[in-house]
Nucleic acid binder design. Structure first.
Lengths: 210, 210, 210, 210
DNA sequence: AATGAATGAGTATTCATTCAT
DNA sequence: TATGAATGAATACTCATTCAT
């Protein structure tokens, strides 16, 4: 019931490496076989340790997933919004800002495709995952809305919150589609269309220098 | 695969009804508990028949899912594209066409939310599902591209294929989000933003009557 | 969550036999290895069926135990109290009644020693078991108290409830000891002492005919 | 068994304290969670040392239990039998002796209820435990028999060995019941009944002064 | 003396699917 | 046609114990 066994937060170099190894192994296997298709024993084996060791570093099979996830979070926003704000401030046109956004959005998706697929799937399947991503989405939307607000009065949209939502939706879906599904259309054309969409939708004069 | 007990394609009225009952039962349970959370025995029980009977109507647990899916397909395209083409031909403005599209797109999602969630999740999880939906998406894109082409020369986009993709992506994601996830923003505002996005992105003069 | 899979209550002869076989197998293994030392797979194997079958007849590993237990219950009280009341009514002396009681109490313990040991152990270990046996004990005490009351005015005890408790405690412990532990003293001497104790403790004149 | 790292028998003060701490910690946890519900790591943590240290003081998880047990042994007999013999020698009536016995028997159970429950359960479960307690019981019976013999010719029982067994059984069971199980009857009534039983059963004239 | 990281065997339970009746 | 009893593989997680440091 009230058992102890707290999860080890490694300080020693060897411990840190082992944790790293386990997470890398997990990413490898999740990428190949998905979450349900991967079991703790296999992760441990792939990392060259025993199951017991796995469970001393991670509370759960889901635990290691959340930890992997956490690594990919936070950096994202900073890089994306940082770049865009700076561009807007230094006189870039709406179209240029959107092209940057597409590039940044793409750069953001660093996970192996299989991992991304798994993550996306679990949004619909796993309650914790849904909550986690919902929180992330909300935070992202707040920042995007703020960014749009800061671009006024160059914008043609007035409900920036809704506009942010629609833009984020379009971006996400296009990004994910190009990564996890086979597409007939080359990625570059899609990215260009995406940037064009943003430029035409959001800006009064997409090509006017800021 | 090469089994000798082929799946019954029911001709008799009673058989047809039983098949119907099973599919309805499955939808009910999938909606409540998802795909993995529902077992064949439970579906049979909910439909008031035995597991054996279930397996004489459907090859698989996945089999019934695919059959359910198949029902919801085809009708969709017709209704959506039919309405839009007619509107465009009878002098609707770009904005009006987009508003119609949003409405139609929304009307298209007739499945119970839980079923939609399950379906969306399985896109990323199940190979067969992915293939099925990829095929559907491709067909949809072809028709949407054709629709856009038929709207020339009123459009500002030239790569209609890419534009169709981006529009479809935005629509899908917004629709799905509003159905399966909790949103802070009211649906109507999102729909209006979506229509506005399409109008501004696609059309040279969104408010000009066709 | 709300899965179905109700436990099969067998009507067909073959089913009944299988259930019987499983329970007999379980008794055999519980007797030899105790509850924790026996796993469902082993019970199934001993009964010549698969684990799956085990779980279609019993909810749980504890389920089969409770079912085994239930078999040994109820008959007990009837036989014991029936005999004693009749003896008292037909003029038996206090001592004769007590000798009967000892005999009946002993006859009541029909389980194999290992099973009894397991059951006794689980009283202290398993919450469900504790509750079950507490309920049984309470019922038993009520009946025993009533029996004593019906023997008035031949008794020297006045607080029949407490007397019943003490008598039951002594009986139980002696019975259990002689069955599950090694004793230096021959069982017959213990039984005679037990009857003598009851006679001297409860009755004003233990040897007076009723 | 033939390992070369023998269990430390502490001579230094610090060692003795550590051993004490571990045993106290174990008692605390055993009381709360039982034997199976407590693991070596938890005991070590509760005592503020490492698992390794635990295993340098005790051979086993069972080892610490046996050591705890050993502490509670021996003192018991002395106190109980000492008091009773003295009372009998100084003119107490049979009833008075029995009342003293009840009081002493009760005072003897100093362990926390959870510990007692665990111990009682393990009698039936663990071979070592059974042997240990069997040995204790035998020794206790020998002394009790001797005590009874010393009370002759005031006794009505002749087979003092069997009488001792029955009395011990009744005492033990009543004590344990009142400690580890919920009872409807107040302890005092049970204790009075117990004393009355002993008086009436053992003594020719329970109220005659010795 | 002390630490605590590492090991890995062990177990209850579910469920898709088959097939004898 | 229909039944539902039977199968058995597959999986997450715990914990007593060791031993290199």
């Amino acid at each position: 019931m009230s058992k102890d066994t707290p999860i080890r937060t490694p300080q020693q170099a060897r411990s840190i490496k082992k944790r790293r190894d386990l997470m890398d192994a997990a990413v490898r296997l999740f990428d190949r076989h998905g979450f349900d298709g991967t079991n703790a024993k296999a992760i441990a084996a792939e990392a060259g340790v025993s199951v017991g060791t796995f469970y001393s570093y991670f509370k759960d099979k889901k635990g290691i997933l959340m930890d992997i996830l956490a690594e990919h979070t936070g950096e994202i926003d900073h890089s994306v919004f940082g770049k865009l704000k700076q561009a807007a401030r230094t006189g870039a046109s709406g179209r240029e800002v959107m092209r940057l956004a597409v590039k940044a959005g793409h750069a953001t998706h660093t996970q192996p495709p299989g991992v991304l697929r798994m993550l996306l799937g679990m949004r619909y399947t796993d309650e914790d995952m849904r909550r986690f991503q919902e929180a992330e989405d909300r935070a992202f939307l707040r920042r995007l809305t703020a960014l749009l607000d800061s671009l006024q009065p160059r914008l043609r949209v007035t409900d920036t919150e809704a506009a942010a939502f629609v833009m984020a939706a379009a971006f996400e879906e296009v990004m994910h589609s190009t990564i996890v599904f086979d597409q007939d259309i080359e990625r570059e054309r899609l990215f260009e269309a995406l940037a064009d969409m943003g430029a035409a939708y959001l800006f009064i004069d997409p090509d006017a220098k800021g």
